[in-house]
C-alpha cells in the first residue's frame, strides 16, 4: 500500500515530525480560528452551516474509510447515521435525556447493531458486501417508516437544542438555547468532533490494529492462515465505523432539530463512499478532503442553477479520469511511489 510515509515517522527523523506538527498546528489554527474570523469578516454566516455539515459528514465518511481499509466497500453508512439520529431524538424527546449523554449512547447503539448485522454480512466480499450495505440503508429508512416509536413519515420534530453540560457545578458547555450564536457553537462542536475522529482514525491506522487491517485488505485468507483473527477484526472495524456514523447522525439531528425517515437515504450513503474515493483510499485524511471538496463544491455550484448537477457530475467524472486513485494520490508521485 501507499502509506509508508505515514507509518515511519521515527525513521525519517525529526525534520519530518517537525513538519507534521507544524501541519497539524496550521490545520487546527485554520479550523478553529481562521474560519470563524473569515466568516465574521465576510458576513457569510451561511457558511457555518455548510462547514458544520462538512465536518459531520467527514466524521461519517471516516467510518466508511475504515471499512474500506479492511477491503470492504461500505455503502450503508446512511443507515447508521439515521439510526444514531433516531436514538438521540427518541431519547431526548421521550425520555428527557440530555443531548450530551445521547451522543455516546447513539454511537454505542449503532456499534452494537452493526455487530449483529456485521457478523453475517461481513462474510460477503466485493460487490456483494457493497450491495447488501446499500440495501441496508433502505432497510433503515423503511424500518423508521414502519416502527411506531419513530413516528413514521411525520418524523420527530421540535427536538430541543443541546442543553448545559456541567460537572460539579462547573459549566463546561453552556446551554445552546441561551447562546447568542448557536451556529458558531455547532460549528466548533462539529469541528472538534471531526478533529478527534481523525485523531482516533490516525491512531488506529498506525497501531497494531491498523497493520492487521492492512493485511485483511491485501489477502484475507493469507492473514487468517498466519493466525490473524479476521472475523473479529472485521466486526471490530465495522463497529467503529458505525459508531462514527451514529455520532454524526445524532449531531445532525441536534442541528436540524428534527429527523425524518428520509433524513439519510441511499444517496447519502453513496455520497459517503464518494467522499472516500475522491480523497483517496490510501490516506487517512482523504475522506476529510473529499467531503470538503464535494460538499462545498456542490454548495458553491448552486449559482449555476439548473446546470449545477451537470457541472458537478462532469467535474467528478473528469477528476476520476485524471486521478483515479483520489486527490491525495498527487502526494505519492512526488515521493516516488513503489
Amino acid at each position: 500500500m501507499t502509506d509508508q510515509t505515514q507509518t515511519t515517522p521515527i525513521v525519517k527523523g525529526s525534520a519530518m515530525s517537525m513538519n507534521r506538527v507544524l501541519g497539524v498546528g496550521a490545520f487546527l489554527l485554520g479550523v478553529f480560528v481562521l474560519v470563524p474570523v473569515i466568516i465574521n469578516l465576510t458576513g457569510r454566516w451561511d457558511f457555518y452551516y455548510t462547514l458544520t455539515s462538512v465536518a459531520l459528514l467527514s466524521v461519517a465518511a471516516a467510518g466508511v474509510w475504515l471499512t474500506f481499509y479492511i477491503g470492504r466497500i461500505n455503502i450503508g453508512q446512511g443507515a447508521y447515521a439515521l439510526t444514531g439520529g433516531y436514538v438521540s431524538a427518541v431519547l431526548m424527546t421521550q425520555y428527557g435525556v440530555s443531548f450530551w449523554l445521547t451522543l455516546p449512547l447513539a454511537g454505542i447503539f449503532c456499534a452494537l447493531v452493526s455487530v449483529l448485522i456485521g457478523l453475517p454480512i461481513l462474510r460477503l466480499r466485493g460487490v456483494y458486501f457493497a450491495m447488501v450495505t446499500l440495501v441496508l440503508t433502505e432497510v433503515a429508512r423503511l424500518t423508521a417508516l414502519a416502527l411506531p416509536i419513530t413516528n413514521g413519515a411525520k418524523g420527530i420534530t421540535s427536538i430541543p437544542l443541546p442543553g448545559e453540560l456541567s460537572i460539579l457545578g462547573l459549566t463546561i458547555i453552556p446551554d445552546f438555547a441561551t447562546l447568542e450564536n448557536p451556529k458558531l457553537a455547532f460549528y466548533l462542536m462539529a469541528a472538534l468532533l471531526m478533529v478527534l475522529t481523525y485523531l482516533v482514525l490516525w491512531r488506529i491506522v498506525n497501531s497494531r490494529l491498523g497493520h492487521l487491517c492492512r493485511s485483511l485488505q491485501q489477502n484475507e485468507e493469507l492473514s487468517a492462515s498466519i493466525g490473524v483473527n479476521t472475523a473479529m477484526l472485521r466486526v471490530l472495524s465495522y463497529a467503529i465505523s458505525s459508531f462514527f456514523g451514529g455520532l454524526a447522525g445524532a449531531i445532525f439531528v441536534a442541528i436540524s432539530q428534527s429527523i425524518y425517515p428520509s433524513s439519510f437515504v441511499v444517496q447519502d450513503s453513496v455520497n459517503f463512499m464518494l467522499y472516500c474515493f475522491l480523497g483517496g483510499l490510501g490516506y487517512v485524511f482523504g475522506p476529510m478532503l473529499g467531503t470538503l471538496l464535494l460538499y462545498f463544491g456542490w454548495d458553491l455550484l448552486s449559482v449555476a442553477k439548473e446546470y449545477q448537477l451537470l457541472i458537478y457530475s462532469g467535474a467528478l467524472i473528469a477528476l476520476m479520469l485524471v486521478l483515479p486513485n483520489g486527490i491525495l494520490s498527487l502526494l505519492d508521485k512526488k515521493g516516488g511511489n513503489k
Binding site: 474500506f68 466497500i73 457493497a130 453513496v270 463512499m273 464518494l274 474515493f277 475522491l278 483510499l281 448537477l309 451537470l310 458537478y312 457530475s313 462532469g314 467528478l316 467524472i317 476520476m320 483515479p324 486513485n325
Partner: peptide, 13 residues
Amino acid sequence: ESTMLLAAGIAFF
C-alpha cells in the same frame, strides 16, 4: 472499486 465512483458520477451526470 474506483470504477464505482465513476459509475456513481455517470449516474449523476
